[in-house]
C-alpha cells in the first residue's frame, strides 16, 4: 500500500441488481463497473471522463462510502471503503452537479452552517470559513438569501462552498459544472484550480462530460466507457497518442442514402474513425486517419458517392479525438441525436 496514493482501486467492480417491472428475457443485473484500476496521487486533480452511463458516478459513490463495491478493493488515503467508513467520511467531501440539497427555508449561511456542524466545526470556525469561501466564489452578498430563491448557478456555487467548508483531504466532484452557464462554470473551475494551488497536499477527483473542462483542469485523467477504464494519462500524453494520425474536419455536400457496410467511409483503408453529422444541406465529417495520405482515398470515395468538398481543415488532436479513437463514438451530451445523424449519413 503506497501512502502517497490518495485514491487507489484494485479490480473494482459493481453490479446493480435491476428492480422494478421486467419483461421476460430482460437482464436481471447490470455491470456498471468492471475491473477498474486507478491510482491517484495526493495533490492530483484527477478527472474521470466518459459518456452517460459509463460508471463515473458509480466510482465516486463507492469511494465516498455510499455504495459497496461488488468486487475488488477501493482505498481512500489508504483506508478501505468497505471497512474504514467513519474514518474516510471525516476526510472527504462530495459535491454533485444539479444538486438540490439543503432546506429551502434556510439562508445560504444557515444551510452551510448546518453542514459545517455535521463535520464537527465549531461555531466560530464555521462562520469564518463560510464568510471566506462565499467571498472566494463571489456570492458573499447572498449570505442571507433563502436558498429557495437562488438561481441554479448560485445554488451550485453554494454547494461548492459546502464541499470545501470542512477542509477535506479528498474532494469528489461529480459533474460540478452541470447546467451552469459559461461564466459560472469558469468561476467554479477557477475556484478548484485556486484551491488545489493553495493546498498542494489535497486531492480532487472530478467527473465530467466536457472535454475542454477535463483538458483545462486535470493533471491526469482516465477515460471510462461501459464500466471499463480505456486509458489513463495526462491530457498531453493522451493527445500525443494521436500524433502519428492525421485529423481532418471536412464539410461536404449531401452524402445521399446510407450505403452498405463496406461502402461506408469507415471502410476506406486507413480511416480509423469517422463521425458524421448532417447539417442543413451539407455534411460534416470528422476523420481520424492513420496517415495524412489516406485523405486522397477519402476524397476519391466521396466523389464516387457524388458528394463534393466544400471545405477542409487539418487540426491538432483534441481530447475529443482521443475519446473517439478509444470509444468509437463521440462524447456528445446529446447522444441520441448524434446516433441518428450517423445513421442517416453513414
Amino acid at each position: 500500500m503506497d501512502t502517497n496514493l490518495a485514491i487507489e482501486t484494485n479490480d473494482l467492480g459493481r453490479v446493480y441488481r435491476l428492480r422494478g417491472p421486467k419483461r421476460k428475457g430482460d437482464a436481471k443485473q447490470l455491470v456498471a463497473l468492471d475491473g477498474v484500476n486507478l491510482e491517484i496521487r495526493r495533490g492530483e486533480l484527477f478527472g474521470l471522463l466518459g459518456p452517460n452511463g459509463a460508471g463515473k458516478t458509480t466510482v465516486i459513490k463507492i469511494l465516498a462510502t455510499l455504495l459497496l463495491p461488488s468486487s475488488g478493493v477501493g482505498r481512500v488515503e489508504g483506508l478501505d471503503v468497505t471497512r474504514d467508513v467513519q474514518e474516510i467520511r471525516r476526510r472527504i467531501s462530495m459535491v454533485s452537479g444539479g444538486e438540490t440539497s439543503g432546506y429551502g427555508l434556510l439562508t445560504v449561511e444557515e444551510n452551510l452552517w448546518m453542514f459545517a456542524r455535521f463535520y464537527g466545526l465549531d461555531n466560530v470556525t464555521a462562520r469564518k470559513r463560510i464568510d471566506a469561501l462565499l467571498e472566494v466564489v463571489g456570492i458573499a452578498d447572498r449570505k442571507r438569501t433563502k436558498i429557495s430563491d437562488l438561481s441554479t448557478g448560485l445554488r451550485q456555487k453554494m454547494n461548492f462552498v459546502r464541499g470545501f467548508i470542512s477542509d477535506p483531504n479528498v474532494v469528489f466532484l461529480d459533474e460540478p459544472t452541470l447546467g451552469l452557464d459559461v461564466t459560472a462554470a469558469r468561476d467554479v473551475r477557477g475556484f478548484v484550480k485556486q484551491w488545489m494551488h493553495d493546498h498542494p497536499d489535497r486531492t480532487v477527483l472530478l467527473t465530467t462530460h466536457y472535454m475542454a473542462e477535463a483538458d483545462e483542469l486535470c493533471d491526469r485523467l482516465a477515460i471510462i466507457d461501459r464500466g471499463k477504464l480505456l486509458a489513463c494519462d495526462t491530457p498531453e500524453n493522451l493527445k500525443h497518442r494521436l500524433q502519428r494520425e492525421a485529423i481532418f474536419n471536412l464539410k461536404v455536400g449531401p452524402l445521399g442514402p446510407k450505403p452498405s457496410r463496406d461502402a461506408m467511409i469507415e471502410a476506406v483503408p486507413g480511416v480509423r474513425q469517422a463521425t458524421i453529422v448532417e447539417q442543413n444541406g451539407h455534411t460534416e465529417l470528422n476523420l481520424i486517419l492513420a496517415q495524412e495520405d489516406v485523405l486522397s482515398n477519402v476524397l476519391a470515395h466521396l466523389t464516387r458517392r457524388g458528394s463534393s468538398l466544400i471545405s477542409l481543415e487539418k487540426r491538432e488532436p483534441t481530447l475529443e479525438d482521443v475519446f473517439v479513437d478509444l470509444v468509437g463514438r463521440r462524447l456528445d451530451v446529446d447522444t441520441s441525436h448524434h446516433a441518428e445523424g450517423e445513421h442517416a449519413a453513414g
Binding site: M114, F118, G120, L121, D122, R129
Partner: peptide, 27 residues
Amino acid sequence: MLPAERVQKATGLRLFWYTIWARAYPR
C-alpha cells in the same frame, strides 16, 4: 483567502451534539 492551517474538527460525543442541534435548527 482561506487560512492555510488545518481546521479542528470535533469527533465522538461533541460531534454527536453538534449534529443534533444542526439538524434541529431548520425545524
